[in-house]
Simulated scan of single mutants.
Amino acid sequence: MSIDLTRDGSVAIITINRPERRNAMDAAHYRALSEAWIEIRDDARIRAAIVTGAGDQAFTAGADIKSFTAAAPPLAELMLTQQGQLLNRGLELWKPVIAAVNGDCLGGGMTLMLATDIRIAAPHARFGVTEVKRGLFPANGGTQRLIRQLPHALAMELLLTGDSVDAALAERWGLINRIVPADTVMSVARNYADRICANAPLAVQAAKELALRSWDVDLPTGLRLEQLMLRLLQTSEDIQEGSLAFSEKRPPRFTGS
């Protein structure tokens, strides 16, 4: 019962390892998950990450409801807005994250997936924010990201009914990138990660940051931010390596500098 973080070359893999509880997470698991995301953010050797769940039944069912509804935390904790940051709650992580959805992706699992960049799913996966069926609502970005990533009527259908949808419908709605055979979910996710890691890491992170920040700025401001970031990257060693590799007809060797 743990949050497992492994590194294979430039790729970090987070496995939510609690299959006996459908990979649901209590407070201790959320703390460990926060620490894993921070390590990925701060380790310059890591260029991309994959998050998945143990077993073949669930990506994660999200919060272990029983552990959180038994007793509310002290009200003072509400003001600790930087405590226990997660990918879907407050943490700024510009390295690409791929969700390998190997089973049900419900509640907090769905809000976690919504904060990832590329999503690969098994055919039997289901997706939903079911919290309203239990007297709650999908926090940690559920009410914020769904409405940005889906058309209004579809987002509100999920938020207000608490119903789940199958992988085929999730793919048609654009919630996930691809459905692949269950036994290939991780290998396909890894293929995406390897292709990303072959690119210039500073450029990849800049592209992700600019794309996500575009949600909060007007177009002229976004275009100006692009211009400034591009000018900054023009001073990098990687842009010189990319140009040289192109002229020499060889794969580039990017260092992130």
Results as ranks from 00 to 15, higher is better:
Y30I: 08
Q82W: 08
P73I: 10
K66S: 15
A121D: 04
A122C: 05
M110V: 09
L78N: 13
N17K: 15
A36G: 03
A49V: 09
L112A: 03
G107N: 09
A36N: 03
V97T: 07
K95Q: 08
A121C: 14
C105V: 08
I38E: 08
I65L: 14
R119M: 04
H124D: 01
A76W: 11
E77A: 09
Q83I: 09
D42E: 12
D43A: 13
D104T: 02
K133L: 15
F59V: 11
D56S: 12
G103D: 01
E20N: 14
A122D: 00
L114M: 12
R31C: 03
N102D: 04
R45Y: 08
T60P: 01
V129S: 02
D43W: 09
G84L: 13
V129Y: 01
N88C: 06
V101L: 08
R134C: 05
K95A: 03
T69R: 14
D64R: 11
M113K: 03
S67Y: 09
A48N: 02
A58L: 11
E131M: 11
V129Q: 02
A44R: 15
N88K: 05
I46K: 07
N23P: 04
S67L: 10
A70L: 13
A27I: 14
M25F: 07
I50D: 00
G55T: 13
V129R: 01
A125Q: 03
G55P: 05
T81K: 15
A76Y: 11
L78G: 09
V51E: 00
D64T: 13
G90Y: 11
F59M: 11
M113F: 05
I120M: 05
T81F: 14
A36F: 05
Q82G: 09
F127M: 10
F59N: 01
P138C: 12
D26L: 07
G55Y: 13
D43C: 12
D117V: 12
R41G: 01
N17I: 10
G107P: 00
I65G: 01
L106Y: 02
K66C: 10
F137I: 15
E35F: 07
G53I: 06
N102F: 03
A72C: 06
A63F: 10
N23T: 12
E39L: 06
G107W: 01
L114K: 03
V51F: 02
V101N: 00
A76D: 14
Q57F: 09
N88W: 02
A48Q: 02
S67D: 11
E77F: 12
Q85C: 09
A115L: 14
M25L: 14
L136V: 08
R31D: 04
G128F: 03
T60I: 06
T130F: 00
